[in-house]
Design a protein around this nucleic acid. Structure first.
Ligand SMILES: [Mn+2]
Ligand SMILES: [Mn+2]
Ligand SMILES: [Zn+2]
Ligand SMILES: [Zn+2]
Lengths: 155, 155
DNA sequence: CATTTATTGCAAGTCTATTGCAAGTAAAAA
DNA sequence: TTTTTACTTGCAATAGACTTGCAATAAATG
């Protein structure tokens, strides 16, 4: 409700909070709280994946006081619920988080100069996975793929 | 010479040390030292990429006393010289290092159970890189690719 | 409203990696 | 070989991301 008042409300966000509460949190004995709403709301309204400290600082600017520890705990809960993906990009000292809700598996490219991160809406690794399973006798469960370089502005 | 005496000597290692000293270290005003020899020697004789603390512990077992700080400084120098690659594998809290010397670009698969890391002697990303440059207008400089799953023993 | 129990904030701790500085030691110069 | 230079090392301290213990707070439920 105070989200409505603050004018940072959207229908998408409303649906996300509803779904998160009923299907995610409540089902696992957890609660929808002020902080979880705030983090979800922020992630919903941001293009770039955010780090814990970025979430912390942005919420501070938005006059929402949440301890950094709570941000860490919150993104971990959201990750457990499958609502958020944790990205550990190369040569960044900290993890980033982005909403998974409604979006499909994809990878990223990152600018080595300014740090901009862009989605790559593709995954070319299905065939390769089979080949690797044959060659190594591993059962492949997951993969990470990331490109880096210079974005249009930084060239 | 004391490497010879200790019996951990090999022709490959001798050549590596020679090359490192003359083309790498000396050319950049650096010196071939006891600790750099020891780290190179260890990496030369190990299949798995090693973390700084693993290098530290292994050298301790080998009765070679090197401070952990020196291990960090050493792998960074070797990385700058292009002799060693730093791997930041997913869900491992620390970097690993492997010899680059004489080996070509490749990727890895890691067992989520036991941590075993196996080389994937392939890189399927040349074509994809062009596509990504066209789509994103980035200039691609680098990429990381890593698989994880369960190794034959851990299935 | 009252009870129950998940969640939060604060302080302190962990873990990997880096930095400052005096002491040590390769390698060049004498 | 001896001296001199300046690169390296070890130790202690520090940084930075993240986690944990615990008392206080606040969702949910009836
Ligand atoms: Mn993304
Ligand atoms: Mn390798
Ligand atoms: Zn850029
Ligand atoms: Zn295994």
């Amino acid at each position: 409700m105070n989200l409505l008042i603050k004018g940072i409300f959207s229908w998408r966000l409303f649906l996300l909070l509803e779904k998160t509460t009923s299907q995610g949190l409540r089902a696992t004995g957890r609660r929808m709280t002020r902080t979880r709403k705030a983090v979800l709301s922020l992630l919903e309204g941001t293009q770039q994946p955010l780090s814990a400290s970025e979430i912390f600082l942005q919420l501070q600017k938005d006059q929402i006081a949440i301890d950094l520890v709570t941000v860490y705990r919150t993104v971990n809960v959201l990750k457990e619920l499958g609502l958020v993906v944790q990205l550990d990009l190369h040569q960044e000292g900290q993890s980033r988080y982005e909403l998974k809700e409604g979006r499909k598996h994809h990878h990223h490219i990152r600018c080595q100069m300014c740090g901009k991160i862009v989605d790559l809406l593709l995954c070319p690794l299905k065939k390769l996975t089979k080949l690797i399973e044959e060659r190594t006798q591993f059962v492949v469960e997951d993969h990470t793929l990331e490109f880096s370089g210079f974005c249009p502005k930084c060239q």
